[in-house]
């Protein structure tokens, strides 16, 4: 059974259909890359999987671990293991990153009937992950993403992902705005989380991320559908020839 199974998904935004019959199967242990031109619906897809309000699912089904994901509230989806690293992470003034991490982790553990972590155990985990991502302690004491640079925000997304240990990670343009060193750090963070129980969907415009995080499958998305799937060579082909040839297919 696939971890994530999307069947004939149609989604409308503001009375316009932006996902138009999309099918996708992702198995545990796999990394899928989704590439595609601006406005093709990549972020929309990630939002619909995570349950963001404002989208109308016109038709189709999304199964996660065999369960109807669309019936679940977004916080239930998170507790069930769905994580979305946002293309544009928001700032939350007055709430320290540390408090935010703790609130999120405890909320998820509570929803899963697990015990909350003790303070020392929690701190130990945060420090370990933050260290490996080169995130300074003083950043954890600042408001969530407040005054963070673009690259710092992206690293903060990976920090949250590593701490929450989800089973499905959706990374929406995690590589945008990263310098070369940061890209390597983030990619290492992602690779460190690859495991047979966990699947990843990596949305990106650039091959260079996929050189570090090597995908099992590459999909091309255009006009709300997946128009071609292949192995990692497809990313190279796209970089050489652009999306033109697939737009016609869509």
């Amino acid at each position: 059974m696939a971890l994530l199974e999307i069947r004939d998904l149609h989604v409308g935004v503001e009375h316009r259909e932006v996902i138009c019959g999309l099918d996708l199967n992702v198995h545990a242990g796999e990394v899928h890359a989704i590439m595609g031109p601006n406005g093709s619906g990549k972020s929309t897809l990630s939002h619909v999987i995570a349950g963001k309000p404002g989208y109308e699912v016109i038709d189709g089904q999304i199964l996660f671990k065999g369960e109807d994901l669309l019936e679940m509230d977004p916080d239930e989806r998170a507790a069930a293991g769905v994580f979305l690293a946002f293309q544009y992470p928001v700032e939350i003034a007055g709430v320290t990153t540390m408090n935010f991490l703790r609130a999120a982790l405890n909320a998820q553990r509570k929803a899963r009937d697990q015990q909350e972590f003790s303070t020392p155990e929690f701190l130990k985990r945060v420090r370990k992950v933050a260290g490996s991502l080169n995130i300074r302690q003083d950043m954890l004491k600042r408001g969530v993403n407040v005054g963070f640079s673009g690259g710092e925000k992206k690293r903060n997304e990976i920090l949250q992902m590593a701490l929450l240990e989800p089973s499905l990670c959706i990374l929406d343009e995690i590589d945008s705005g990263l310098d070369i060193d940061a890209l390597r750090i983030v990619a290492n963070g992602i690779n460190g989380l690859r495991s047979p129980e966990r699947a990843m969907i990596v949305i990106t415009h650039y091959r260079r991320l996929l050189d570090h995080v090597v995908p099992d499958v590459v999909h091309v998305m255009s006009k709300g559908r997946i128009v071609k799937s292949g192995d990692k060579e497809l990313a190279l082909e796209l970089e050489a020839c652009g999306y033109g040839q697939f737009e016609d297919a869509a």
């Binding site: 916080d75 992470p89 999120a104 949250q160 929450l164």
Partner: peptide, 11 residues
């Protein structure tokens, strides 16, 4: 902002 928090598991 609310959705960001809820995506991380908060009610």
């Amino acid at each position: 902002v609310l959705f960001y928090c809820i995506q991380r598991g908060l009610s």
